[in-house]
Amino acid sequence: MSTGSHSAHGHGGHDSHGHDSGHPESTFKGYMIGFVLSVILTAIPFWLVMSGTLGNKDVTTVAILVLGAIQIVVHMIYFLHMTPSSENGWTMMALIFTVVMVVITLAGSLWVMYHMNTNMMPGMDPSQLP
């Protein structure tokens, strides 16, 4: 039983270890699409903040966060060549796990500490001092 499964695993593993199979060839077109999109997605948030076009701070904040998130995805696809199938899906698996950890770390810290600040130290706002 053990030898059979081992050899089967060995062959399956060997095939998928072919050289450079997990890395799609980069293309000039791909890099240029990524670069142009990145320039646009960088220019818009800087322009929004420096000109104050949207007027409302909260709306501007949400807009630049969304644009930043889109730009990160653009970099992942066109510069880091992330595809669901690269390295038999292990890079995508690691990425999804990391994104979950990052979201928990960021959202959890900000959420908890925001409530600590507002609930534990009343009257510490300098603008409220006499």
Partner: peptide, 12 residues
């Protein structure tokens, strides 16, 4: 490229 991705977070 990863450092560029982190920088997107920093400037935003």
């Amino acid at each position: 490229h990863f450092l560029d991705v982190v920088w997107i977070g920093v400037f935003t």
